[in-house]
Amino acid sequence: MQLIDGKATAAQIKAEIAEEVRQIVAGGGKRPHLAAILVGHDGGSETYVKNKVIACEACGFKSSLIRFEEDVTEDELLAKVKELNDDDDVDGYIVQLPLPKHIDEQKIIMAIDYRKDVDGFHPVNVGRMAIGLPCFISATPLGILTLLRRYGIETSGRKCVILGRSNIVGKPMAQLMMQKQYGDSTVTVCHSHSKTLKEECREADIIIAAIGRPDFVTADMVKEGAVVIDVGTTRVTDATRKSGFRLNGDVKFDEVAPKCSFITPVPGGVGPMTICSLMKNTLAAGKKEYYK
């Protein structure tokens, strides 16, 4: 069994990005600029955005954080989105989700200029990804693809089971794993209502678990030699920790790991790669790689 170290891989990629940025700036080019909009004070979102700012520093990017209180109106948020769309210095930006219930998330996503949509959530980017055109790929699926490639894991012709059908992970992951230039796999998507979920998992060469239920994948669901990618990050109570909680994956790691050829830990697996992929998208936005 080999542990897939997302933390070390992400650090390596950020160093590669930083070197490229150094060369761009030395050649008289513009330093990439990533902006983030954060609404309210959700603990998870605060941590995630803080880590993005740190990653920007490591990559040599300029970063801006725009904060709004929980009671911000939809119109105020849309006005800020338009401002960022029109700001030539900002190469890419994200609106941290989830947003308060009185704001229509889809309306905000639709208002983002798809050429600056480094989260890859805009329908133009989602559509281009689905038909295999160059675009910003949402960060978690891109991070998973990067890990599979960097660890030399064979995906072509393999049976891949994806647990979960969210717009952020499950759906784009399925699209990418079936496409010839990415996964080239035979893909099955399972979810909470799938009648043969366990049977499908037992036949899988690769399992990507993004169902949001701690310890959902158990040893009896995994065949010998399978590759298991755990996207789950649920906070569970843990009295032994100073914080009072720990991050738990969708996979019951201790009993599943011995059966795997490769497995990602939680934390330290997919998580660091998500932020690292956002940096890759920001660099591409700065270079106008996909959209002129």
Rank of each mutant, 00 (worst) to 15 (best):
C190E: 07
Q181P: 14
M178V: 10
V187I: 08
V161L: 11
L145C: 12
C160E: 03
L163K: 04
L147H: 02
L163F: 05
R150Q: 13
G164V: 06
I153A: 07
Q179M: 14
S156H: 12
A174M: 05
G183S: 13
T186F: 10
G164C: 10
V161E: 04
G164T: 06
S192N: 14
L145G: 10
M178Q: 14
I153C: 01
H191D: 12
Q175T: 14
P172L: 10
R158E: 10
T146E: 08
G152L: 02
G157S: 11
C160F: 05
R165I: 00
P172K: 08
G164Y: 05
L176G: 01
C190R: 05
V187Y: 09
S194G: 09
M177W: 08
R165M: 03
K180M: 15
L145D: 06
T155K: 04
S156R: 10
G164K: 03
I168P: 00
Q181D: 15
T186R: 12
Y151S: 04
N167M: 03
T146A: 05
S166Y: 01
Q175K: 06
V189G: 04
K171A: 04
V187A: 07
T186G: 12
T188A: 15
I162V: 14
T146M: 06
R149Q: 06
G170R: 06
V161W: 00
L145K: 09
C190K: 05
V161F: 07
G183C: 07
V161P: 01
K171D: 00
D184E: 14
T188I: 15
S166Q: 03
I162Q: 05
K171V: 01
V169D: 02
G152I: 08
G170Q: 02
L148M: 11
Y182K: 08
K171P: 01
Q179V: 11
S192V: 15
K180T: 14
T186M: 13
K159N: 13
L163G: 04
D184W: 13
